[in-house]
């Protein structure tokens, strides 16, 4: 039982990272009905920035600076590469974001260099004992960060004018425009938010040890998460993120007992298997809105 609960604890940590990433995807999707494949690159950019900043200022100052910088980067990318394409097929825009991903990732990756880097987080491999269960401090921190960021986002959408504008334009873009909502600002804000979220997620994905250029692959697990939660559901993204994180950790822990013949860790494919199972039953995810097809 302890092993199970420890796996759940670890899964909640990874799941929080997934949830943060998934929130970014969903925010962009709600704004412009596009899945942005550039999120992994923004995540990597955030990690690299923190790893450099943490050397000069401390970790706690480095994170907000990096998050702001990546948000600005995302803003610039939206302005240069995405805005001209608004109105074109969503698939085309999605592929442009793939191109952005490749470019940003190779530039950020170049700064990682040959020797392993670290984000200089204060947690390392330390554990904290929660009710008899050993839980890595970094996982607790990720969970707390996710709850705080999620809360802030909720407040942002609920209480600020631009948050209201974003909700309105997600509901019906044309109606929102008619009411005086500046859709361009909505697009820009959604990209900046998504970039910042990716950076935060990156920091927590990178804690606990040295990192290399391949860490961006973590962000791909957010894709099945958003499909599972429903592309346009923020709450769904959080729940699905945590769910997938926990299932993944539990599978990694018990795989050797359940199916001893499998040598490779099945953790990385669990999100996709869960996603496919759910899609067979609910084609729009657990909390997604069914798309109405107008003929």
């Amino acid at each position: 039982m302890t092993a199970f609960l420890e796996a759940v604890g670890e899964g909640l940590g990874t799941g929080s990272v997934y949830a943060l990433l998934a929130l970014g995807f969903v925010i962009i999707y709600k704004a412009m009905q596009v899945i942005s494949f550039a999120q992994p690159a923004f995540m990597l950019a955030g990690i690299v920035l923190v790893s450099y900043l943490a050397e000069s200022v401390n970790f706690w100052a480095a994170v907000p600076i990096a998050v702001a910088a990546v948000a600005l980067l995302a803003l610039a990318v939206e302005r240069v590469a995405i805005r001209p394409m608004v109105g074109k097929a969503v698939f085309v825009i999605a592929i442009i974001t793939l191109g952005v991903d490749v470019v940003v990732r190779v530039v950020a990756g170049a700064f990682i260099g040959v020797d392993p880097r670290s984000v200089g987080d204060p947690w390392g491999q330390e554990v904290v004992n929660v009710a008899g269960i050993d839980m890595a401090q970094r996982n607790v921190a990720a969970l707390i960060a996710m709850v705080v960021v999620g809360g802030l986002l909720f407040a942002f959408f609920r209480f600020t004018p631009i948050g209201l504008a974003m909700r309105a334009s997600a509901l019906d873009q044309e109606a929102a425009m008619a009411q005086g909502v500046n859709v361009g600002t909505v697009f820009a804000t959604s990209w900046a938010l998504a970039g910042g979220l990716a950076a935060v997620a990156g920091v927590f994905a990178a804690t606990g040890g040295p990192i290399d250029q391949n860490i961006w692959i973590v962000a791909l697990a957010a894709l099945p998460v958003i499909i599972l939660g429903g592309l346009d559901s923020l709450g769904g993204a959080v729940l699905a993120g945590l769910l997938i994180g926990v299932v993944q950790a539990v599978v990694a822990t018990y795989q050797r007992d359940w199916v001893p013949s499998l040598e490779t860790n099945a953790g990385p494919i669990v999100p996709y298997l869960v996603m496919m199972l759910v899609l067979l039953v609910r084609p729009y995810g657990l909390f997604g809105t069914k798309e109405v097809e107008r003929v």
């Binding site: 596009v34 969503v90 698939f91 499909i227 592309l231 499998l262 490779t264 494919i269 996603m275 496919m276």
Partner: peptide, 28 residues
């Protein structure tokens, strides 16, 4: 048949899953 049930970006992500699952099978 799985793909024909889905459209657009849902299909893209599901086929992406195919790559990961395929890699796992190849590795095993």
């Amino acid at each position: 048949p799985l793909a024909t049930r889905l459209r657009g970006l849902y299909l893209a992500i599901v086929t992406l899953g195919l790559v990961f699952i395929g890699q796992y099978i190849f590795a095993e």
